[in-house]
Simulated assay, not measured.
Amino acid sequence: MRLSTGDKIVSIFIYTSLTILAFVSFYPFWNSLVISFNVGQDTSLGGITIWPRKFTFDNYYVVFRDQRILDAFFISVFRTVAGTFLSVALTSMFAYGLAVKGVIGKKYYMIFAVITMYFNGGLIPFFLVNRELHLMNTFWVLVIPFAVSVFNMIIFRTFFREIPGELEESAKIDGCDTFGIFFRIILPLSGPVFATLGLFTAVFHWNDWFNVIIFIDKTELYPIQALLQQILRSNTMSEALNAAVSGSSAAGDIMSLSKSVTSKSITMATMIVATLPIIAVYPFVQKYFVKGVLVGSLKG
């Protein structure tokens, strides 16, 4: 099919705009990656754009010798895994209860749930509730308060309602109870929506730093993003450099680190370490996005 001149102009405009948008979105990450592999003293001179001028691994050497960063990284991993599993499990079961027929009062449960999505008590009541539950300064304050998402529940519920009811009736005839139907019938058929909403939940837990600063005073419980935020707001990278230098066995290593590493270069290396794991997950679930979210939401 031949395009008219007007269609060609529109297509050129769209593709040019998308290319510029993609470049503007991707370049800051790429520049941070380049700086993390460049000698810190050389980076301070400026002019580092799309490729390292003096390549080095010293910045990552310092990062991985800092025990605080390693501990924060593993806390982030554990929080993401535990928080995602708990949230997806509870939210999906809540949604299934509101999707099946015959549940008494499910209309009012849905109204109450939606109200909490639009109106909440605010930060201070949220803080007081967590304090009264003795969750403050514990790992579980990062998981339990976010165990159920109403927005995700609505998507789950809409997706479940699209599954033919005859499958559930057949399972009941075969003797399955409600939990059996959910885990043996509904769960295997809902892979796309579970993968997509699981990714969204994982991204939230991995990137969240604000709630950490509000509810946790102990820096040893900080995930990587909260520690990175603290690093960006202070000069604590000098402590990491001092720790790496003091751990070097040779005088040549000490001189090399002091000449090639700066606070900015270490900060960029820490940002890359904190960002790459969650980015690496996207390719494995990207194929589920349209089928899992768009179908589950637009049909509602």
Rank of each mutant, 00 (worst) to 15 (best):
L3D: 10
L3Q: 07
S4R: 14
T5Q: 15
F13L: 13
I14D: 04
Y15Q: 14
Y15T: 10
S25M: 13
N31E: 10
L33F: 12
L33C: 02
V34G: 03
V34P: 05
V39S: 08
V39M: 15
G40N: 11
G46H: 09
F55W: 15
F57S: 09
V63G: 02
Q67G: 00
L70F: 15
L70C: 01
D71Y: 14
I75F: 14
L86Q: 06
M93S: 01
A95S: 03
L98T: 01
A99I: 07
K106L: 05
M117R: 03
N120I: 05
P125M: 15
P125F: 08
V129R: 03
R131K: 15
H134K: 15
V141A: 08
P145L: 14
F146N: 10
F151Q: 09
M153F: 05
R157W: 09
R157Q: 11
L167P: 00
K172E: 10
T178A: 09
F183I: 02
F183Y: 12
L197N: 04
A202P: 00
N207Y: 14
D217P: 00
K218N: 12
E220Q: 07
P223L: 15
I224Q: 08
L227T: 00
L228P: 00
Q230T: 00
I231S: 02
L232C: 04
N235K: 15
A243E: 13
G247L: 12
S249C: 02
L257M: 08
S260V: 04
I266G: 01
I266V: 13
I266E: 06
M271T: 02
P277F: 12
I279R: 06
F289Q: 03
V290G: 02
V293S: 02
V293K: 04
L298M: 14
G300C: 12
G300E: 12
